[in-house]
Design a protein around this nucleic acid. Structure first.
Lengths: 135, 135
DNA sequence: CAATAAATTAGAATAATTCTTAAATACATC
DNA sequence: GATGTATTTAAGAATTATTCTAATTTATTG
């Protein structure tokens, strides 16, 4: 997509989620929400920013990714202790985790079905179901 | 179970897994392998040891839990970044994760069925399937 | 029991993340 | 558009979970 148009799209996308479209947030959103599904770590984003000549800080990348996740624009996926992934694919889907490469890959939505959920403890509801297939 | 008998059981249990039954390992194994299923963190074990007057160190608890996990006596479960759980239940089963309490609970074995796994990438095999139901 | 190998410990080192605070930026109002 | 107030950003300090290091202690073998 064209640059001006894309910037406008990203701006509306943030605003519609109640996030003020500041310069840094727009820059990072521009890196992440380009139409392709991604699984990024904080380090990935810092490196992507560096390559795109976006001047920012480690703290701001953490802040921004956490805000996006809290607003539902990113999904946090935890498969290994001490390493958070952020997934731009918001549809219901699950993951392959390549153990030797520390890398996530989407399992196409609908491919996996979880059957036979038992009753939940009283007063609880399902927040999410996460299936990780370690390969 | 009686104490002497139990110590003997734990000793054999470690030996059968190729782990030398040293004093610390026997003590920690005694805390964990008492016949009830547990999900412990390193901090939990340190506290359990303190209450049982077992003199040890943080490093040794890490070493011991990692060794037990490597030997297949414990299963490491990761649901939140920066917090490792060790599960004494080795049978095939999945977990409820109480988000507000940072606590795991077993979903009875066989209750959950994962259907529709897609083909794996070439040269890969399934190491584990982990289902976490966040409640 | 001596020699050798392995385990244990305390504290240092590392890694991921959060916190703090001063400076910069965004927004609403005039 | 200038101005005042609230929010954001950035750099580094602080925190947390974990691993590493090296010296001491414990276990095993001959």
């Amino acid at each position: 997509m064209g640059n001006t148009e894309s910037n406008q799209n990203v701006k509306s996308y943030l605003q519609n989620s109640g996030i003020r479209p500041t310069k840094i947030r727009l820059s990072i959103a521009g890196l992440l929400f380009d139409g392709t599904d991604k699984h990024v770590t904080v380090d990935n984003v810092i490196e992507m920013a560096r390559l795109s000549k976006i001047k920012t800080s480690v703290a701001s990348v953490y802040n921004t990714l956490n805000q996006f996740a809290a607003a539902g624009l990113l999904r946090r996926v935890t498969v290994e202790q001490g390493k958070a992934f952020f997934d731009t694919n918001l549809s219901e889907h699950h993951h392959f985790f390549y153990e030797d490469e520390d890398r996530l890959e989407d399992i196409p939505m609908g491919a996996i079905q979880v059957e036979g959920l038992p009753d939940l403890p009283a007063g609880r509801s399902i927040k999410a179901i996460e299936v990780t297939v370690r390969i």
